[in-house]
């Protein structure tokens, strides 16, 4: 038995909607799962931040009372204490100067270095540079402190920036070396054919295209320097103290000021978030540019 010409499309028409109905269901399940997954991950990442924010608006008494997790009378007393009594604002400025300084120098030196490593035959250079991240910081600190105190420069911004470069530079070079390696050599070659020098083609072609990589490296090195505790603990003084060191003062001998600690933590986190959001624009732009390039 065979189907007539008229019957065939009718059958197909009957089958097709059925398929179409099936596809959305499974897609809907997948979407649902994905949303659930995203919620779970976001919850894990955001919950501590939310707790920190809530705690910064509570008294110590409310913080240690589980019944008052969400139901409490908000107070700005902790922020008042942190900013006016503990005078935290200069520490924010200190951290900013040191992190920005260390990142700038790392970029100025690290970008050309990474380019050289990527384009010329420099074997194992990145691995060697990353060794600097493997060496425990404290083993460097004693000799450093000895040298710097002999020179009488302990406590200056210069010393803090110099030591933080040790944290930021390897990161910048490692990220950018692989980034430059991934960029097509042909672009530079054609630029040189059109009359640019090697340096000219680096500055006018490669560098602008590397903006997303540079932005990523800058954010990361800024954050690493911002969070560095150990070097500033020993090498800063009362005037140049950075945030992570200043915050340790909230745990006193026989009491812990939870509210103040959390308010200070919020103040530490916010500037980094702003820097990340600001630089993220460039990261995202770079990602799409890479995708269309194929």
């Amino acid at each position: 038995m065979s189907l007539t010409q008229a019957q065939r499309p009718a059958l197909q028409a009957a089958v097709v909607p059925q398929k179409m109905r099936k596809a959305p269901t499974s897609r809907r399940i997948m979407t649902g799962l994905r949303v659930l997954g995203i919620i779970a991950v976001v919850f894990v990442l955001v919950a501590p931040l939310v707790w920190m924010l809530l705690a910064s608006l509570k008294t110590s008494l409310d913080i240690t009372n589980p019944a008052r997790t969400f139901d409490f009378l908000p107070t700005l007393e902790n922020y008042n204490n942190v900013i006016n009594t503990q005078k935290f604002l200069p520490f924010i400025l200190n951290s900013f100067i040191v992190a920005a300084g260390a990142t700038t120098v790392a970029l100025l030196v690290g970008v050309p270095a990474a380019y050289a490593i990527a384009r010329f035959k420099v074997t194992n250079a990145t691995a060697f540079l990353l060794l600097a991240r493997v060496i425990p910081g404290v083993s460097l600190l004693v000799p450093w402190y000895y040298v710097f105190s002999q020179l009488g420069i302990v406590g200056s911004y210069g010393v803090l920036i110099l030591t933080h470069i040790f944290v930021t530079m390897p990161l910048v070079v490692a990220i950018l070396a692989s980034f430059f390696e991934g960029m097509p050599l042909e672009l530079e070659e054609s630029a040189q054919v059109d009359g640019l020098t090697r340096i000219g083609s680096f500055a006018r072609i490669t560098l602008p295209l590397a903006t997303p990589g540079i932005a990523t490296a800058a954010i990361l090195s800024f954050i690493f320097s911002w969070n560095n505790f150990l070097f500033a603990l020993v090498l800063s003084n009362q005037e140049t103290r950075t945030l992570p060191v200043a915050i340790s003062n909230f745990t006193a001998y026989a009491s812990v000021d939870w509210g103040g600690l959390m308010a200070a933590s919020v103040l530490i986190t916010v500037p980094v978030m702003m820097v990340a959001l600001f630089a993220q624009k460039y990261v995202v732009a770079g990602l799409t540019a890479g995708a269309t390039k194929g």
Binding site: V142, S149, L233, V234, V245, F250, T251, A252, Y253
Partner: peptide, 20 residues
């Protein structure tokens, strides 16, 4: 200059090791 308890001893050890 004041430090939290543990940080206090850490920085002493580094500084005094360097005969500061």
């Amino acid at each position: 200059e004041t430090f939290g308890n543990e940080q206090l001893n850490d920085q002493y050890k580094v500084k005094l090791n360097a005969s500061s």
